[in-house]
């Protein structure tokens, strides 16, 4: 028994100390920039670098997501002009930021920012990294602040789930990996930059085409709706407003074939998917102060 206890002690200590040793080595690697020999060996194998499958969700850093989002946003604004009235944009940013803070991803590389698009088309986009665009037409569908919160929370849902990045074709990853492996801490050379820029253009095209033309799959829309309900509950808005919004959009979309009608599932289908989650929240009741500031802001639309 004594021997067994000693072995137990020795093994336990070795296991625990081993973890510490790995920690120390890892720390040293962090300081010196030298990574473990196994990793170094792995890294030195060009074949393994090339064979790694590109996974946009994991391989694109928040910093890269930020640059992708900026260009996706600029591309969206090629089709839809910005609506530049200051007070209503500030109102949308206050509401949007309050909601983003309660999301699962309140911190992004460049933060959340919101802009109104000067179109009567009913539409909204959540670009990677947190640039969110909402149309004047969609704002006009909102009867109260809770309904607008539903729209913005839905787009935040797309952002936090990185739905935009899912639209990137796997083939774009090759350039990212090869240039990352080839470069040596210096500025890119002409050929590498050209290769990356081509991949970048393709990436922006993949995402913008999905957002503006084809839309996300139904399950991703349901995920964004589900997250919107969670966010609204955390902040204190009534998630029944999501159902109200979908019913209003259904009414409006009967006269329209563009925008949401083209890129989103039938509102009734979405309502069916989320009805249980909304449950017994009851009808939206806007306190006077909330309704008045909403009306003041919307008077600028």
């Amino acid at each position: 028994m004594k021997k067994a206890l000693l072995i137990l002690f020795a093994v336990s200590f070795a296991l625990v100390a081993g973890c510490k040793l790995i920690d120390v080595v890892a720390d040293a690697a962090a300081v010196t920039g030298v990574i473990s020999s196994e990793q170094a060996q792995y890294a030195s194998s060009g074949a393994k670098v090339a064979s790694k499958t590109f996974d946009a969700m994991k391989d694109i850093t928040p910093e890269q997501e930020y640059y992708i989002g900026r260009s996706v946003g600029a591309t969206v604004l090629k089709t839809y002009q910005p609506y530049t009235e200051k007070t209503v944009n500030e109102y949308v940013n206050l509401l949007g930021q309050a909601l983003a803070m309660a999301s699962d991803m309140p911190e992004t590389f460049g933060g959340y920012h919101f802009l109104i698009m000067a179109t009567d088309e009913i539409n909204a986009f959540g670009a990677p990294g947190g640039l969110i665009f909402v149309s004047r037409g969609l704002l006009k569908c909102c009867k109260n602040e809770d309904m607008l919160a539903a729209v913005l929370a839905h787009e935040i849902g797309h952002v936090q789930n990185k739905h935009g990045l899912r639209a990137i074709k796997a083939s774009r990853g090759t350039a990212v990996f090869t240039t990352a492996a080839a470069e040596a801490g210096k500025s890119f050379g002409g050929a590498e930059l050209a290769q990356l820029t081509t991949a970048f253009e393709g990436t922006i095209g993949d995402i913008a085409a999905t957002m503006v033309n084809s839309g996300y799959a139904r399950k991703l829309e349901t995920q964004a709706d589900t997250d919107a309900i969670t966010i609204m509950k955390r902040v204190g808005y009534n998630p029944t407003a999501i159902k109200d919004m979908l019913l209003e959009m259904e009414k409006q979309l009967k006269h329209s074939k563009g925008g949401f009608a083209k890129t989103h599932p039938d509102p009734q289908v979405r309502i069916k998917d989320i009805e249980k989650l909304i449950g017994g929240c009851g009808p939206v009741i806007s306190p006077k102060a909330r309704q008045e500031r909403f009306n003041r802001a919307m008077a600028q639309i």
Binding site: Y42, K48, E63
Partner: peptide
């Protein structure tokens, strides 16, 4: 070396690289 490790293992993220 770090660039290669970043590309292969995902242990590292290289600031200012890629896009």
């Amino acid at each position: 070396d770090n660039a290669e490790v970043a590309a292969s293992s995902g242990e590292l993220a290289l600031a200012g690289k890629g896009f």
